[in-house]
Each structure stands twice: as C-alpha cells, then as structure tokens.
Simulated scan of single mutants.
Amino acid sequence: MTDKSVWDKEIPVPAKVIEYVDPGVLSKLPPGTQVQGITASGASYWAQTAKILATDQGGNPTPFFIKVHQFEHGKNMVSAEYYAMSLLYSVVPHMVAEPLGWGAYTDEPETYFYLCRFLELSGNIPSVTDFPKLVAEFHQRGRSPTGEFGFPITTYGGRNPQTFPLCKSWEECFSRGLENIFDMEEKTHGPDEEMRQLRRGLMTKVIPRLLRPLETEGRALTPTLVHGDLWDGNASVDKATGRPMIFDATPLYAHNEYELGPWWATRHKMTREYIAGYKAIPGCHPSEPKEDFESRGALYALRFDLHASSLYPGNLKHRQLVMETMRDLLEKYPLGYEGYLLQKGLTPPATLVAAEARADNSDETITAPCSRTTGHEDTGNRGGEEQSS
C-alpha cells in the first residue's frame, strides 16, 4: 500500500532483481524446495518485493516472500529485519510469517534480501473484536531479558534508522530515541526556529512531566516487547486462516502504551475503538497516573508523526502535525515535572530545580546517560517497515 501523494519517487532498487530467483536466495530455501517462478507482490517505497512460487518435497505449494534492498544500507536493513521478525516469531508465531533468512545476491553486486513465508493477506485490518486481545497477549509474553528498555540493535522505519538505547528508565530511553528522530527530521527538512523552541520545551518540560511519574512515587514499569509501528499498514488478515498477522516491525522493549501511538491518529483505520478494546483487558489498563493516559497517547503519537516527517523531503504535512501537538502539550504542561510535584504537594529536589533553570536558558535537555546500543551480527543494524505511519 503506497500513496503517491505522500511519496512519488521511483523505488531505489532495479526491478530486474525480482525477475529471477538468485542462487543466493535459493540457498536459503528449505531443502527439497522446487522453484516454479517469481512475480512482483506487495508494495514499498524503498524495496522491490515479490512472491516466489514453489513446492515443497511433497509437491505441495509453498510460496515465499522476498524483499530486496541494495548497498550497505540495504544490507543493514534486511539483516536487521530478519533479527527483528525472528524475535517476534519466537514470541507470537501465530501472528508472524515465519522468517527464513537474509543474505546477498550472487549475480547482482551489493544486493541483499530478506526472506520469509508468503501469506495471502486480505488487505483488511484485523477486527477490533479480537486484535486488541492478540496485541495484549503479545505484550504479556514479550518481556525484556535484561530488564532494560530499548533495543540492542538499530531498527529502521522506512529507510531511516531509529535507535532506542538500552536504559533502566523508560523516560531516558524514549527521550534519547526521540532526540535521534528529531535530528533526522531536521536533516530532511532543515532547521526551523519555532520547531527548535518547541522541541526544547517538549524534551525539558513535557516528557519529564508525562513519563517520570510512571517510575516514581513507588511506581514501576515492566519493559515490554512491542511491534513498534503497529498502524493499519503493518497489520492484516491471513486469507487462508482468518488470523490477524503483523509485519514490518521496528521493535523495542517499551512502556506498553507506546504501542498504541499510531492508533491515536485519526487518519488511521485502527483508531480509538482499538485503544478502548486494549485498555479494557486485564493487565493492560492505563498506567498510573491514569489521568495522563490521553496526553501520553498524544506524546507517543507525536513520535510516529515525527519519524514519518523524516522520511519525505518536501512534504511538511507531518512536521505541521508534530508542531501542533507540541504546542498543545506545552500549553497543557508549561511547568513540566516541577509543576506536577507542586500540584501533588511534593517538594522538587534542588537538583531538578537547578537543572530546569539551566535548561530554560540553553538547549540542554535533562536526561541521564544510559548503556550503549550494541551491534547485531556484523552490521549493527536491523531492517524495517516499508512505509511509515
């Protein structure tokens, strides 16, 4: 599913790479597979995608899906997509097409692929009656093995990397990940003084106000594995089984409400009905302070709008959405975390008051250092979705 009004450039990978099945691809197919052909399938702004027609050892149809990128950046994307989707498959195999591998073409230089089972998808979004329950099940199964937030490798949304470093605190992890996306967005569209001022206010006032209470006053969050870009373009229904399926993940261990970020956007097909269904499930009720739930939703939705803005030079629609959201949040929380403490009758620590005073007079943001992101295999990266929410 692509939209020419969003991006109308040619796919940066030649179509010839899906006109045949390369020996490098053949080497990743299950033993006994007989290839019968290949045909273009799916849609992407960034990659060539195709369906490989094949049969298994018993002569039964067993099609495969291939996604092809080029150059070092493409190698990073497909290797990391395999890492990410393999992780999701290990947690919810009934919701993910089985990943089979990634590798390099033999007959084309600097050409790399991701390979998985092919599923005939309906093109419809999963039903609100069952999808929120499945997402909740996924979240309840996927827990951080280290107890940290973030992800050990770089992920990709479209062609742009996103890094959420491993941190003990969700506020630190989210803040540093968002700073990276802000930087990418500015490279795409250039600097804007109001955007810079709003960004500083968001980082120094809004984020501490909305995320710090989640992990203070005796509260704690459990780092939860999330898909990371669960908009309606990355979920559908398997025609053969009727089961909801998810794909093109950019996962991380996060606050579970982060997953709902795309569902807050009115332009999407999975909207507040899905949010209502999810938060009604035991174990998925809004985190305390519950009164901040909708504002946290706006903050998380902003992250997806910001990343979308970073992808499309010349299209300022998403930047305008981001700026509007930042204005609204800063109007609602002008005093930041200090205002929250005063409202609760608590005394702000002297270090916080001093830090916020410094930040008000500079571009400083108040975040603590956290552990570095580590590499994956020989690339240090992971692959990602074809579009952005």
Score class of each variant (00 low, 15 high):
3 D>W: 09
3 D>Y: 15
3 D>E: 07
4 K>S: 13
4 K>A: 03
5 S>C: 10
7 W>C: 11
9 K>Q: 13
11 I>V: 10
11 I>R: 02
12 P>R: 05
13 V>P: 01
19 E>F: 10
25 V>D: 00
29 L>S: 10
30 P>M: 14
31 P>H: 09
39 T>W: 12
40 A>K: 08
47 A>E: 10
48 Q>C: 07
53 L>A: 08
57 Q>I: 12
59 G>R: 06
65 F>A: 06
71 F>N: 10
72 E>D: 11
74 G>A: 07
87 L>G: 03
88 L>N: 04
88 L>H: 08
91 V>G: 04
92 V>Y: 01
93 P>R: 07
93 P>I: 15
96 V>K: 01
99 P>C: 05
101 G>V: 08
107 D>G: 11
110 E>G: 09
122 S>I: 03
125 I>M: 14
129 T>I: 06
130 D>K: 02
136 A>Q: 04
138 F>G: 00
143 R>K: 15
143 R>V: 02
144 S>I: 09
152 P>G: 05
167 C>D: 08
168 K>E: 15
170 W>C: 00
175 S>M: 12
176 R>A: 03
178 L>V: 05
183 D>W: 13
186 E>A: 14
192 D>P: 02
199 R>T: 11
199 R>Q: 05
200 R>H: 09
202 L>F: 15
203 M>D: 01
203 M>P: 04
215 E>C: 00
216 T>L: 06
221 L>K: 02
221 L>F: 02
222 T>F: 05
226 V>F: 06
227 H>P: 00
239 K>N: 14
244 P>W: 02
250 T>S: 15
251 P>D: 00
253 Y>C: 13
256 N>Y: 09
258 Y>E: 03
262 P>G: 06
279 K>L: 12
280 A>W: 09
285 H>V: 06
291 E>M: 14
292 D>R: 15
298 A>G: 03
300 Y>D: 01
300 Y>R: 07
305 D>G: 03
308 A>N: 02
308 A>E: 00
312 Y>V: 15
314 G>A: 04
317 K>L: 15
322 V>W: 00
325 T>S: 13
326 M>A: 14
327 R>T: 07
331 E>D: 07
342 L>N: 11
342 L>P: 01
342 L>M: 11
348 P>F: 10
350 A>F: 15
351 T>Y: 14
355 A>T: 07
357 A>D: 15
366 I>H: 13
367 T>I: 08
372 R>A: 15
373 T>Y: 12
373 T>L: 04
375 G>D: 01
385 E>C: 11
